[in-house]
C-alpha cells in the first residue's frame, strides 16, 4: 500500500470528525482539516511509529482577501523515514482569528508561529511566547495582509521623540 493511502486510512480511523479533504497537486499531498484538530493530528503524525513526521519544515498563512474564510494556515511537514512531504491546511476566519499552537509537538514551530502572528495577526492558542518577531512591539498593523499597502503606512513606525 502506498504511503498516501496509509495516511488517509490512519487519519480517518483516528479522527473521524476532523472533516479531512485530501487532494494532490504536482506530487504534493494536501490535507485540509478542521482547525480544532490541528494539534492532535500533528501529534499523531509525529508519534505514529509507521509515519514519524519528525521535521516541521514550515508554518505560514495565506491571506485570500475576499474569501469567506479569509486565512489558511499551511504546515509543511516531512518524514525522514519515507522522505515524504505532507501539507496540512486549516482555514481560519477573520472574526475568529486563532488556531491551536503546535509548539508542544515541534519546538521549531515557536518562531514560525510568531512570524505568522506578526505578519497576519493570527493568534496561536497555548503558545508559550506570543510576541511579534520582526516588527516592533507597538506596531499596530499586520504587514502581509492584503490591505496593507506596499509603501507602508506613514507614521505607523514610531520614531524616538526629539
Amino acid at each position: 500500500m502506498e504511503l498516501k493511502e496509509i495516511i488517509i486510512q490512519k487519519l480517518n480511523e483516528h479522527f473521524p470528525d476532523a472533516g479531512f479533504e485530501f487532494s494532490e497537486y504536482i506530487n504534493e499531498f494536501n490535507i485540509k482539516l478542521d482547525k480544532k484538530f490541528i494539534q492532535p493530528v500533528c501529534k499523531f503524525l509525529k508519534e505514529d511509529s509507521e509515519l514519524e513526521f519528525l521535521l516541521c519544515e514550515d508554518i505560514t498563512a495565506v491571506d485570500w482577501a475576499r474569501r469567506k474564510k479569509r486565512f489558511t494556515v499551511v504546515y509543511h511537514i516531512f518524514t525522514l523515514k519515507h522522505n515524504y512531504r505532507l501539507v496540512l491546511k486549516c482555514d481560519v476566519e477573520e472574526d475568529d482569528c486563532n488556531i491551536d499552537s503546535v509548539t508542544s509537538v515541534w519546538r521549531t514551530s515557536n518562531w514560525q508561529e510568531r512570524e505568522c502572528y506578526d505578519m497576519y495577526g493570527i493568534k496561536f492558542n497555548n503558545h508559550p511566547d506570543m510576541r511579534r518577531i520582526y516588527m516592533p512591539e507597538d506596531f499596530e498593523y499586520y504587514p502581509l495582509r492584503k490591505e496593507f499597502p506596499l509603501m507602508g503606512i506613514p507614521g505607523s513606525l514610531s520614531l524616538p521623540k526629539k
Partner: peptide, 9 residues
C-alpha cells in the same frame, strides 16, 4: 531528537 524538533537541517 532536539535538533530535529528544532527543525535543524
Amino acid at each position: 531528537e532536539d535538533a530535529l524538533s528544532y527543525g535543524y537541517t
